[in-house]
Amino acid sequence: MIKSIPIPGIEDFDKPYWENCSKQKLSIQHCADCKAPRFPPRHMCPKCQSLNHEWNIVSGDAILWSFVVPRPPLLPVFENQSPYVVGLVELIEYKNIRIIGEIKSKSDIDSIKIGDTLSVRFKKINNEISLPYWVRE
């Protein structure tokens, strides 16, 4: 089993996402022609089939849609962190854009609940990748 966390491979269509994350900014891919937002990023606009895309910075503020608390057996890097909370968060600015990220809380993780309001932070993995995670306000 791998020793590190699995690292997202950067591709043409999601490079700006990772570049923005490295600058501590969350961005959402939009069609450059019909302006429709989409997540996860992809090559083509599913609304108008355009291959042109642009990126808009968002606040990262989100509502917790659901979450899990993985327990062993896990990849070694996650087994060492367990118990931790992984959530699916829905962005305030875009209903139906949902992103996976770790959920951190100053208080006990048992108090985390669906509907909690969250703000985004970033964890640097290497020079190219920073992962978004969310904290309770």
């Binding site: 089993m1 491979g9 896990l74």
Partner: peptide, 28 residues
């Protein structure tokens, strides 16, 4: 348990955050 160090498929949007196994994905 055979997850690669670099992920190029759609799992790049979940596994790096620790949502690794099918059971985690179902549990959500």
């Amino acid at each position: 348990s055979h997850t690669n160090e670099h992920i190029f498929d759609h799992w790049k949007w979940s596994r790096p955050s620790g949502l690794v196994r099918p059971v985690d994905e179902s549990s959500m």
